[in-house]
Design a protein around this nucleic acid. Structure first.
Length: 306
DNA sequence: GTCCAGGAGG
DNA sequence: CCTCCCGGAC
């Protein structure tokens, strides 16, 4: 040990965790098409937006065809909204598709088709919040920035604090911990963010973490403590899907997406057949219209917007 | 039944 | 803080 720097035990553990995780990343990282410098910053952004609340395995085929159709912001900006909503398919939360196109239009028209390279510039874009901006900064630009999502919060809380992250909004403690353990070197910080997230996605999962396969099990305070409160969460049980407005909105959009391109319209009869509860159906149609996902025509039919 | 690589609006 | 927004994997 050098005589100038007195390394604390915590520093040593942190460094050991970084090394083990980086080695694990080398051989275990999933070969996703937007990784390892194979796409543009815009491609990374698209992958992150598609991945919001959506499993990566479902995202991959959508991302491929999406990027083939619209390789950059200018291309997406020029597409019709109907095409964009249709291409979003069954990824869910279609407002994301609308915001992604709005984002593309801002980038194309106000940024000369160049994605901003600052956190503030990115968060100013439609549909880009703290997580996605940080992810693009780290994964696309290689900047040193702490990325914080539910996986990272869970992994860091377990490994370094020995307890479950209880969900809810990101706390000051979450941010301080993420900052404290982020490697100083930019390149290493990018690997760190990706590998911690990957570990949370495939090994250190919420309910059934596979500690026997974990590269940092020897340093994990949560495991050492006997995994107290495993799977515990503060968030209330999620709203059911069956019978919700989300289901009804999905039915309406699915009916429109199923129509041939160029005439994606459904009439009164077909609309009414979609859902029994007329009041709820009308409310959902109104909310889809407000969101800009559909247009209500004077004759009562619906169509996807131009 | 549970879980998601969140963001926006209230 | 809170709620809403989708759909499939497991």
């Amino acid at each position: 040990m050098g005589e100038t720097v007195d390394m604390t035990e915590a520093d040593g553990t942190r460094e050991t965790v970084r090394r083990h995780l980086a080695a694990w990343w080398e051989t275990n990282a999933r070969d996703l098409p937007w990784r390892f410098g194979r796409t543009t910053p815009w491609g990374v952004l698209v992958s992150e937006v598609m991945s919001q609340q959506t499993q990566m395995s479902r995202v991959v085929p959508y991302w491929r065809s999406w990027m083939a159709a619209w390789p950059d912001a200018a291309a997406l900006a020029a597409a019709s909204t109907a095409e964009v909503i249709t291409a979003w398919g069954k990824l869910g939360y279609p407002r994301r598709a609308l915001r992604l196109q709005e984002c593309a239009r801002v980038v194309a028209n106000e940024c000369h088709d160049d994605l901003p390279e600052t956190y503030d510039g990115l968060t100013a874009l439609p549909g880009i919040g703290d997580y996605t901006a940080s992810a693009v900064m780290s994964f696309a630009y290689g900047k040193r920035i702490a990325v914080i999502d539910t996986n990272i919060r869970r992994v860091l809380s377990r490994v370094f604090d020995g307890r479950e992250s209880l969900g809810g909004a990101t706390s000051r403690a979450d941010r301080e911990l993420a900052q404290r353990v982020l490697p100083d070197d930019a390149v290493r910080s990018t690997v760190w963010n990706q590998s911690v997230m990957e570990l949370g996605a495939v090994v250190c999962t919420a309910k059934k973490p596979m500690c026997e396969r974990c590269p940092v099990s020897a340093e994990c305070r949560f495991l050492a403590a006997g995994r107290p409160g495993l799977g515990e969460r503060r968030t209330r049980p999620r709203q059911r899907f069956q019978g919700t407005d989300r289901q009804v909105r999905g039915l309406v959009l699915n009916a429109l997406r199923a129509k041939p391109q160029g005439s994606q319209t459904i009439g009164r009869e077909e609309i009414r057949a979609l859902w029994k509860d007329r009041v709820q159906l009308d409310a959902c149609i109104a909310s889809l219209d407000e969101d800009g996902l559909i247009e209500m025509m004077p004759d009562g039919s619906l169509r996807l917007p131009d």
